Amino acid sequence: MQIFVKTATGKTITLEVEPSDTIENVKAKIQDKEGIPPDQQRLAFAGKQLEDGRTLSDYNIQKESTLHLALR
């Protein structure tokens, strides 16, 4: 499925993911596309910060959802 990640600079990244993917996997995909190390990424959805060990389906993130990326 496709999801979107909006960066602090307003850029939107499109990612191909599975509901079973962990947040860690998603951060690795962002690193592949943007070169941002996962340990510098903070992802949020619906106002909640997402934890590495959880999956997209844990957070009820569905196709075409938009996550927000902040850098630490």
Rank of each mutant, 00 (worst) to 15 (best):
M1Q: 04
M1I: 10
M1P: 02
Q2F: 13
I3M: 04
I3K: 00
I3L: 06
F4Q: 05
F4D: 03
V5A: 04
V5L: 05
K6V: 12
T7K: 08
A8H: 15
T9F: 07
T9W: 08
G10M: 07
G10F: 05
G10V: 05
G10W: 05
K11A: 08
K11S: 10
K11C: 05
K11Q: 09
K11P: 07
T12Q: 13
T12I: 15
I13C: 03
I13Q: 02
T14G: 06
T14R: 11
L15T: 02
L15K: 00
V17T: 05
V17P: 01
V17Q: 02
V17G: 02
E18Q: 13
E18D: 14
P19Q: 07
P19E: 11
P19W: 07
P19I: 07
S20R: 10
D21P: 01
T22Y: 12
T22F: 13
T22A: 06
T22Q: 06
T22L: 12
I23N: 01
I23M: 04
I23W: 02
E24K: 12
N25Q: 13
V26I: 14
K27T: 02
A28L: 13
A28S: 09
A28T: 10
K29S: 06
K29F: 11
K29L: 13
I30Q: 00
Q31I: 02
Q31A: 14
Q31Y: 15
Q31R: 11
D32S: 14
K33S: 12
K33C: 04
K33P: 02
E34F: 09
E34Q: 09
E34N: 08
G35T: 04
G35K: 07
I36R: 03
I36Q: 03
I36D: 03
I36H: 08
P37C: 05
P37N: 11
D39I: 12
D39G: 09
D39V: 14
D39F: 15
D39H: 15
Q40D: 10
Q40M: 08
Q40F: 09
Q41T: 03
Q41M: 12
Q41W: 03
R42V: 15
L43A: 01
L43T: 01
A44C: 05
F45D: 02
A46Y: 10
G47E: 07
Q49T: 15
Q49V: 08
E51T: 08
E51M: 11
E51I: 09
E51N: 09
E51Q: 12
D52H: 07
G53R: 12
G53S: 12
G53I: 08
R54W: 10
R54V: 12
R54N: 11
T55G: 03
T55Y: 07
L56C: 03
L56G: 00
L56D: 00
S57I: 10
S57W: 10
S57H: 15
Y59M: 03
N60K: 08
N60R: 07
N60F: 10
N60L: 06
I61Y: 01
Q62D: 09
K63I: 07
E64V: 03
E64I: 03
S65P: 02
S65R: 03
S65M: 07
T66M: 08
T66Q: 05
T66V: 11
L67T: 02
L67W: 01
L67V: 06
H68R: 06
L69I: 05
L69D: 01
L69M: 06
L69R: 01
A70S: 09
L71G: 08
R72W: 13
R72K: 14
